[in-house]
């Protein structure tokens, strides 16, 4: 799931204090699960901002709202009028949501990010999130026993480990496991260690962000959508 963490309150206050009417706009899917930007956190942030404004003697009206997801236009529709009555939207959705709403409002009003979106992660225990995938667009997990070297090895080596492995930990920090130490152990257990003996050729990174912004287009659905629009247009429904 997408994991994020709320921006430090002082940073948010610096962003918000110049405005008159602010809407803290929560998203109730991924960022709610990680207790960063859901409807509940939006409400809490709103209350904190109101009290900070009162303390600083700043005249600021702050309200909060939340919808299921900030990455689908239809969810925004019910609140579009309400949103337009504010002069700033502080979106606590992930970065996708902030972009999507900013595009939707087309510059009519600013949309600021309330949280720092960080990574796709797992939740080994309540309140603890670890990065396990970097969205590189060309998965190699079948070669490394299900442990991703691109994201979990600081140097994204395909022929690790490097010389910096220290007691199974990475040179970057002794709390970070060395991915290749884990990969070797895992492949041993799986009985396929010799797969690691071949030298992996240089990767094609273009499938990731290095290849420029990406999009996925499912033709069988888009064709259906176009057809829908054509019928609607001909019947003059729209």
């Amino acid at each position: 799931m997408i994991v994020g963490q709320q921006k430090p309150f002082d940073e948010i206050w610096e962003m918000v204090k110049g405005f008159k009417k602010v809407l803290v706009y929560g998203c109730n899917t991924c960022v709610a699960i990680c207790h960063a930007g859901g409807g509940k956190e939006a409400e809490i942030l709103t209350s904190l901002l109101r009290m900070k404004a009162a303390q600083e003697g700043v005249d600021l009206q702050v309200d909060h709202a939340a919808i299921e997801r900030h990455c689908e236009p239809e969810f925004f529709e019910p609140l579009d009028e309400k949103v337009r009555t504010y002069d700033l939207v502080l979106s606590t959705a992930c970065g996708v949501g902030v972009n999507f709403l900013a595009d939707r409002l087309g510059g009519s009003m600013p949309v600021y990010p309330g949280i720092n979106t960080t990574f796709y992660g797992g939740v080994p225990e309540a309140g603890f999130f670890v990065e396990l995938c970097g969205g590189c667009g060309n998965c190699v997990l079948h070669l490394t026993g299900g442990i991703c070297p691109i994201v979990r090895c600081s140097k994204s080596l395909m022929n690790g480990p490097c010389g910096g492995t220290n007691n199974g930990k990475c040179e970057v920090s002794n709390e970070t496991d060395c991915a290749w130490f884990l990969i070797v152990e895992r492949m041993k257990k799986l009985g396929t260690l010799e797969k690691l003996y071949e030298v992996q050729p240089p990767r094609d990174w273009s499938t990731g962000t290095h290849g420029g912004p990406r999009r996925v287009s499912l033709e069988h659905i888009r064709a259906y959508e176009e057809q829908e629009e054509k019928n609607a247009a001909t019947e003059g429904r729209r």
């Binding site: 963490q5 709320q6 430090p8 309150f9 002082d10 940073e11 207790h35 956190e41 809490i44 942030l45 904190l48 900070k52 303390q55």
Partner: peptide
Amino acid sequence: MVDGAVTEQTGVSTIEKP
């Protein structure tokens, strides 16, 4: 949660001035 994250990260406490 929010308050914990606020003070811990920024170090600057946002406690009201007496």
